[in-house]
């Protein structure tokens, strides 16, 4: 039986993530309780907002050592969404320089878009560059819903599963072992978002 724990650190979009995941699996909780993290088979870290303030809330509200054990020792599938993906980096350069979780080497920087407006808001397609279980059954160049001004620049290109173009190519899906991250919002991306989440929950 699968048990999904959506980590709750005061991020805005937790409810939408819960709603869509509940369509796929029955046992879903929004929680940061040690018990729920221990019981979970899959962990999701949602996110809306700035890097620094999100990291602060994560450090304050989530039992990180326990989470690390679940992710690194027990190898539970972990999905970071939007800022939840960005905080996996070493540092974030939004309103100053902030330390991230450092689970995937890289930095988070503002999108270099020339004259295009920021944030990058709207439907944009991904281009898959590396095979991953996350992108199974997705049509070529699937569109997802994005809302962000910053992007993850990984140190090692091998973690990049897909990128997206908005003035520049940026990493929109990454994976390192059992750790996954998506820059877009699958919970707002209708059918393609649901397929991607199904892929994650099937791992």
């Amino acid at each position: 039986m699968k048990k999904i724990c959506i980590l709750d650190y005061g991020s805005g979009n937790v409810r939408s993530v819960f709603n869509i995941v509940s369509l796929i699996e029955k046992q879903v909780v929004i929680s940061n309780e040690p018990k729920d993290i221990i019981d979970a088979t899959h962990l999701i870290l949602p996110g809306v907002g700035a890097f620094g303030s999100s990291m602060k809330k994560i450090q304050k509200n989530i039992p990180l050592e326990l989470l690390k054990t679940a992710v690194f020792n027990q190898k539970k599938p972990f999905l970071g969404i939007c800022v939840g993906m960005q905080v996996l980096a070493d540092t974030g350069h939004e309103f100053g320089i902030h330390k991230g979780l450092g689970w995937i080497p890289g930095v988070v920087k503002v999108l270099s878009v020339d004259s295009l407006p920021l944030p990058h808001v709207g439907w944009n397609n991904i281009e898959v560059v590396k095979e991953s279980v996350l992108t199974k059954h997705l049509p070529q160049n699937s569109d997802f819903y994005f809302v962000h001004s910053f992007c993850f620049e990984p140190k090692n290109e091998e973690v990049v599963v897909a990128h997206t173009n908005y003035g520049t190519d940026f990493c929109s899906i990454l994976q390192k072992d059992n750790i996954y991250g998506v820059q877009f919002h699958p919970e707002k991306s209708q059918q393609t978002g649901k397929i991607l989440l199904e892929n994650f929950l099937r791992i």
Binding site: S16, N19, I20, Y145, E187, K188, S189, Q190, G193, K194
Partner: peptide, 8 residues
């Protein structure tokens, strides 16, 4: 609506 539809 937020239970039935997954778009902005």
């Amino acid at each position: 609506v937020s239970k039935r539809t997954f778009m902005p």
